[in-house]
Design a protein around this nucleic acid. Sequence first.
DNA 1: GATATAGAGGTTACGTTATAACATCACAAG
DNA 2: CTTGTGATGTTATAACGTAACCTCTATATC
Lengths: 159, 159
Amino acid sequence: MTSAKGFSQHDHHSCVDDAIAAAERFCAEQGLQLTPVRRRALEILLESHQAMGAYDVLARLDKDGFGSKPPVAYRALGFLVDNGFAHRIERLNAFVACTHPGAEHDPAFMICRSCHKVAEAEAPRGALLKGSADEAGFVIEQTVMEAEGLCPSCQRSDV
Amino acid sequence: MTSAKGFSQHDHHSCVDDAIAAAERFCAEQGLQLTPVRRRALEILLESHQAMGAYDVLARLDKDGFGSKPPVAYRALGFLVDNGFAHRIERLNAFVACTHPGAEHDPAFMICRSCHKVAEAEAPRGALLKGSADEAGFVIEQTVMEAEGLCPSCQRSDV
DNA sequence: GATATAGAGGTTACGTTATAACATCACAAG
DNA sequence: CTTGTGATGTTATAACGTAACCTCTATATC
């Protein structure tokens, strides 16, 4: 499996199914509740590899009969992020489904500035700023890395 | 010079002066205007090594007789960021003065979650996600890296 | 069975962050 | 002088995020 699912051809149907199945398994093991809103929120994120704003997710949830107010979306997304099923893209104030849940990892993304698709890259946990952190006496708890640029298909269309 | 000025003792007075001088030099060379608001905004950021929100900077600018409305701050900060005198910390929706202006670099930070001080780390331009990006055919234009954790002094006070 | 208690989801109301669109002014080029 | 460009200011509003409160349901406890 390539590390950049977001930009490559893949069986998206099974990609979605696998992620939902993984979430179900993980929640069962951990005694977490993958409730209808939470599950639906994850499905919504999984339907595209694009980053979605909380309010976009909210609109979808509302249409599906869940609540219509911001906390509904923020709480579902918070659950997904806290448990590693999704990541927050700081740069876009948006969220994406995690493409390799289960693996302990720091999120690292390639974000297409043209189509807003997002691919998650491999980033060995903690390795990156270790030198500077040790030198400074700083204790790193979490690292995020976000690269902005152009994905393969947008390089062809959008200068 | 250490790479983590934000967390270590240093001559802050000359640190500010140097940064202002560097900005003046750079603007003169490039035909950019380091106008009063812009210069003042940079001074405000330089006064602390903490990340400041745009509205905090705005309040200071307002008190100093500049405009009082958001675009005043956002435009000054945008100028500073565009020209490498400051960086935006995505995670905090906030801004810090650059501690090594002039050097071509991708911003990389260590952010103390307790005191909100920010130290800029060394991050060789472009190196970070190159492997994943090449594999995916993604062209990186800019990368940001943000590590959250505890700075040396907060490790002592704040568990 | 009655009743606490905890977790989830819904609401109202509000706070924070950011930008679009427009008016004015100063200065340089023609 | 007038035309254009860049900077600064304004009003108004968009986009993002959360605190506080109420209700429901499922489990645990009496």
